[in-house]
């Protein structure tokens, strides 16, 4: 007990600040990744050969760009994007600096997940909506996104948890957050207690995100309602 309180006195603030930084990084980059990834995923779906507005060239280019972005390992992307990050947000350091590479790495991932979710929507529903006179935009919003919602929501915790992992990597190059603390104290100063504390916090965060995600799906998937 005494040991614990001494530990908290010493590192409590540090860990709290680190957790907050990690949360901000992850939530902001999740938001950014969805703002970019959802439209891209919709485009992939609509432009596909069997989509609403098939366009072979455009869908090939888009698919190629997304695959490219996805094939660059995050740790390399992080370094590669430093100049672009500086130009965009003024710094490549800290929480702000980490958000740009996190968004760039997660947006194409989200795009593919969205594409996958929308592919699960029954083609018969799209056709039914067409037969009623729905426009392409209406089919996207009222059929694809609406009927695909439970599946889209199931992808959300996957993205958040992936970004949580990436944010720790970003920590190693000066982004702050729990990853930064784990490296600085645990690796460079051999303070295993601090390292273990960051791991415990990260595990708790992952559990929490997944449970919150499951709850959201249960609440919003209308099929399960009585």
């Amino acid at each position: 007990m005494e040991w614990a309180s001494a530990f908290f006195d010493k590192y409590g603030l540090l860990l709290a600040q680190g957790s907050l930084d990690t949360l901000v990084m992850v939530l902001a980059s999740t938001l950014g990744a969805y703002l970019i990834g959802v439209p891209l995923g919709v485009l992939l779906t609509v432009l596909a050969p069997d989509g609403l507005k098939p366009n072979r060239a455009a869908s090939a280019v888009l698919g190629w760009v997304i695959n490219m972005a996805r094939s660059i390992p995050f740790i390399i992307l992080l370094v590669f994007l430093i100049p672009a990050t500086r130009a965009l947000v003024g710094t490549s350091l800290g929480v702000q600096g980490a958000i740009v590479p996190l968004v760039v790495s997660a947006a194409p991932f989200v795009a593919r997940m969205v594409e996958q979710s929308l592919a699960e929507v029954d083609g018969g529903l799209v056709e039914a909506a067409q037969s009623m006179g729905a426009s392409t935009g209406q089919i996207v919003t009222k059929v694809y996104l609406r009927e695909g919602l439970p599946s889209l929501l199931r992808g959300l915790p996957i993205t958040v948890i992936t970004l949580l992992g990436y944010s720790a990597m970003a920590g190693t190059v000066g982004a702050g957050g729990l990853g930064d603390i784990a490296i600085r104290y645990g690796y460079q100063r051999y303070q295993n207690d601090v390292m273990v504390a960051t791991i415990v916090i990260l595990v708790a965060m992952v559990q929490l995100v997944q449970s919150a995600g499951n709850l959201l799906v249960r609440k919003l998937d209308r099929r399960m309602h009585a």
Partner: peptide, 10 residues
């Protein structure tokens, strides 16, 4: 249609 096609989320 044969496969009915009602919106499951509505």
């Amino acid at each position: 249609f044969q496969n009915i096609s009602l919106f499951q989320q509505r």
